[in-house]
């Protein structure tokens, strides 16, 4: 049976509570990353997680709200709203096609990377003139000073850091999904994609099965 989706069904009460959690995960992820002095932001784990489990629209709302909420403290974040929204949408639509497991992962990463670069590069160039003031943008400044064009400098620096950032964010999100119990996963609209393999591999199920068979002998 082919699964059909509707935006209304996507926004269940569970999703309604999942969005604030996703926003908080985004924020705390960034916070912990900077506390551990890591050179990546890791501030879209929540967007990736919500989009993987509840679909593109919930992911997009999580992305939007994250930048709105953090924008209250630092309004500069408002300009990057489209980037986070697009990450949610792309990850969500790919998740509906079950593209986040196995070899398809590579294709998904390339799509996500390219789309978010195409959205973020113009913002960095037109709003900031290439340098946003973050650690990585110093590299952009150096490239620009050596005479590279602004688009080339921004793109070449962003492609490295965005890829690294997105791969790590996905990794954390996937690790989390892997340890969510199946009884919880099944309540999310896309949760079933991540159940089959896991329960089959889980040791306790095998043990129960063995015990069951033994009792029936």
């Amino acid at each position: 049976m082919k699964k059909t989706y509707s935006i209304k069904d996507d926004f269940s009460t569970l999703a309604m509570l999942f969005i604030p959690l996703g926003v908080a995960i985004n924020f705390v992820g960034g916070q912990v990353a900077s506390l551990l002095k890591l050179p990546v932001y890791l501030d879209c784990i929540g967007t990736v997680l919500t989009a993987m489990l509840s679909g593109p629209w919930v992911g997009a709302v999580t992305g939007l709200l994250t930048n709105v909420v953090t924008g209250i403290a630092n309004p500069v974040n408002f300009w990057f709203i489209p980037v986070n929204v697009v990450v949610g949408l792309v990850v969500g639509f790919l998740a509906r096609k079950d593209m986040w497991r196995g070899w398809k992962l590579i294709i998904s990463f390339i799509i996500m990377d390219l789309v978010s670069l195409f959205v973020s590069t113009p913002i960095v160039v037109y709003v900031y003139g290439g340098v946003t003031g973050s650690g990585t943008s110093l590299l952009t400044a150096v490239l620009m000073a050596t005479g590279q064009s602004i688009w080339a400098s921004v793109f070449s620096v962003e492609i490295i850091w965005t890829t690294l950032d997105r791969v790590l964010s996905y990794l954390v999100a996937y690790l989390i999904i892997k340890v969510i119990p199946a009884k919880t996963l099944v309540k999310f609209s896309l949760g079933e994609f991540y159940i089959g393999k896991k329960t089959a591999a889980a040791a306790p199920v095998e043990e129960v099965k063995d015990a069951f068979e033994e009792a029936n002998k």
Partner: peptide
């Protein structure tokens, strides 16, 4: 969302 950030 605002509440959750503090809690988390």
């Amino acid at each position: 969302s605002m509440e959750m950030i503090g809690v988390l």
